[in-house]
């Protein structure tokens, strides 16, 4: 698994390192830290120091004998393109720091595609909903446009439930595996909520829910399943977000959730929910 972590010097970035470390400790994932600066001909000192501090914080969560990452042999940043720098180390797993110049969301999306990350993680300030450096647009754009799954951490720590909202779109194996990892990591219960259109489609979504139930039964994971109408979903998601992480399957062109959770709805969800939000693809 390859995890891209978006970081800046905000408190919300500092707070998520513990959660990132927990995921990294369990999955032995390759970790990529990304910091984006607005405009500079070289990596800004404050960003470099911030990323190196996060790296040390992450390493500090591992017992030394279990640390799969290596220290950097030297700290010379390699320029990989205009406004792009990289510092990398290879232990049993790879750890790398990237600094890029430009728009935060655009650079994160581009890097996620380049390195083929399986998951993007970012924090956000909860002061006015879900902000990144004073902007709502960053978490929203990353959640909406990423080529892989995205975990927006609003609430750090263990989740009691993973509440997965499913519609009739294609459920990828990768997304199921990511849900499985989070259920294992948090030792959490799993709720799968199927969303049906007002008329028809019930059979299709019901069939998919039965298949999922069978999948989890075979894996020995107890899953609680509920089917609801699309107009009930938004309230349900807002209410159930108090219980844990809300996961939304947003893949597939025909995804009802994609329509239901339009730009403004993902925006509202990020703003109104207290929990972390996982967008599955």
């Amino acid at each position: 698994m390859k995890i891209l972590v978006m970081l800046d010097t905000g408190n919300y970035s500092r707070r998520i390192i513990k959660d990132v470390a927990r995921l990294a400790k369990n999955t032995f994932a390759d970790i990529i830290f990304l910091g984006v600066q607005e405009n500079n001909k070289k990596p800004a000192k404050s960003l470099v120091n911030g990323l190196l501090k996060y790296q040390q914080d992450l390493y500090g969560f591992f017992p030394p004998e279990d640390l799969p990452y290596a220290e950097f042999t030297d700290r010379s940043w390699r320029e990989t393109g205009p406004g792009k720098w990289l510092l990398t180390s290879r232990g049993m797993k790879e750890f790398s720091l990237h600094i890029r110049t430009g728009s935060v969301a655009r650079e994160a999306l581009a890097l996620a595609a380049e390195v083929e990350s399986d998951l993007i993680i970012l924090g956000c300030s909860r002061k006015f909903g879900c902000e990144w450096d004073g902007e709502m647009n960053v978490p929203l754009r990353v959640a909406r446009d990423a080529p892989c799954s995205v975990l927006v951490i609003k609430k750090v720590g263990k989740a009691k439930q993973i509440i997965s909202i499913l519609d009739q779109s294609v459920v990828s194996q990768d997304s199921l595996e990511l849900v499985n990892q989070l259920v294992t990591l948090h030792d959490a219960g799993l709720k799968i909520v199927g969303v049906k259109e007002k008329k028809g489609k019930k059979d299709k979504i019901e069939k998919q829910m039965v298949e999922l139930l069978k999948y989890y039964n075979e894996l020995g994971i107890g899953a609680w399943i509920k089917l609801m109408n699309r107009e009930e979903v938004q309230d349900y998601v807002t209410a159930s977000s108090r219980e844990g992480i809300v996961a939304l399957w947003m893949g597939g062109r025909e995804s009802l959730l994609k329509k239901l959770f339009s730009r403004s709805m993902v925006d509202k969800l990020l703003e109104n929910t207290t929990s972390s939000l996982l967008i599955l693809r």
Binding site: K2, F28, A29, E116, D118, D174
Partner: peptide, 12 residues
């Protein structure tokens, strides 16, 4: 030799 958590890309 190594431990890989799912999901992973083919290249990995």
């Amino acid at each position: 030799f190594d431990f890989l958590a799912k999901p992973f890309k083919l290249g990995e």
